[in-house]
């Protein structure tokens, strides 16, 4: 309704000009002043995020695929969705291949993908009988590449995927938040739909505040179509203020901290 547009804008302009408003200066120093020493940022992020049930894994550039693999095996994760075009995705494929367990699924209703109906079945690690036996060599978790539009992946994405792996653009000390920057290579839903979201965080990409991160990374020059801060697994307190985790998004958030 083009008429509504011009009428609204004309009215706002006339009303504002009749009574101009002089706002006070926007003094950002109270936020800029929030600083933490280099050594304190990661522990702070960890403390804040663990307080809302985030899990942490420590790794290095060399061993992170092995650490990840060990975690997936320990937790009985059958399927891991990943972004094949990213450096991280390529590394993952190489490692899985090297281990001789390269099972890159082209999702097609494989029975093991169907095994876990995550909506109905408690996650294996939470099941009363304890974790499933760790898969041995040749039985590693199946890698599933996110290599097609969501329309072609949708039912499986919602029913057959246990975990999703993404990178991050760093983390924020003030609030304990990961910065995610979805792209053509790394889709938005990787961090949303799978029951476990595993996020790779480089230990040298830490910021004090959200403001500092967006300034230093020059967000205003070019925004991602869907920039995100993620500070824990999905949660709700809508039932009598009782915190419950895993309502619509991931039930678990695992931060894989990678040091050089």
């Amino acid at each position: 309704m083009p008429d509504a547009r011009s009428a609204i804008l004309a009215k706002l302009r006339a009303d504002r000009d009749a009574h101009p408003l002089t706002p006070p200066a926007s003094d950002f120093t109270p936020i800029e002043a929030k600083r933490w020493p280099d050594d304190d940022r990661l522990p702070r992020i960890r403390r804040l995020m663990e307080a809302v049930h985030t899990e942490f894994l420590d790794a290095t550039d060399t061993d992170w695929p092995a650490v990840l693999r060990e975690f997936l095996a320990r937790e009985g994760v059958g399927t891991l969705l990943y972004a094949p075009e990213t450096e991280v995705g390529k590394r993952l494929e190489r490692e899985w291949e090297r281990e001789g367990t390269h099972e890159v699924e082209r999702v097609r209703g494989d029975p093991r993908c169907e095994r876990i109906d995550p909506c109905l079945t408690p996650h294996p690690s939470h099941a009363p009988h304890g974790p499933l036996p760790s898969p041995g060599a040749g039985e590693g978790p199946t890698l599933i590449p996110y290599d097609k539009p969501i329309e072609d992946l949708k039912p499986q994405l919602f029913t057959a995927i246990d975990a999703g792996l993404t990178t991050t653009r760093g983390a924020i000390a003030e609030t304990g938040s990961l910065i995610l920057w979805p792209s053509a290579d790394e889709p938005r839903t990787l961090s949303l739909v799978p029951h476990i979201h595993i996020a790779l965080l480089r230990a040298d990409a830490l910021y004090d505040t959200f403001l500092q991160a967006m300034r230093e990374q020059r967000w205003a020059d070019a925004m991602s179509t869907n920039a995100l801060l993620i500070s824990g697994p999905s949660k709700t307190a809508d039932i009598e203020q009782t915190l419950a985790y895993g309502v619509h998004g991931p039930k678990r958030l695992v931060v894989l901290v990678v040091r050089s």
Partner: peptide, 30 residues
């Protein structure tokens, strides 16, 4: 910084979702 602290007493909400457009050419979702 103030909204979630004032609303529910949490330092930040789990998600801050910043949308700057629909799915771009080459993107797989959105």
């Amino acid at each position: 910084s103030l909204l979630p602290r004032s609303a529910t007493g949490q330092p930040i909400t789990t998600y801050v979702n910043m949308i700057s457009g629909p799915r771009k050419s080459g993107e797989k979702d959105g």
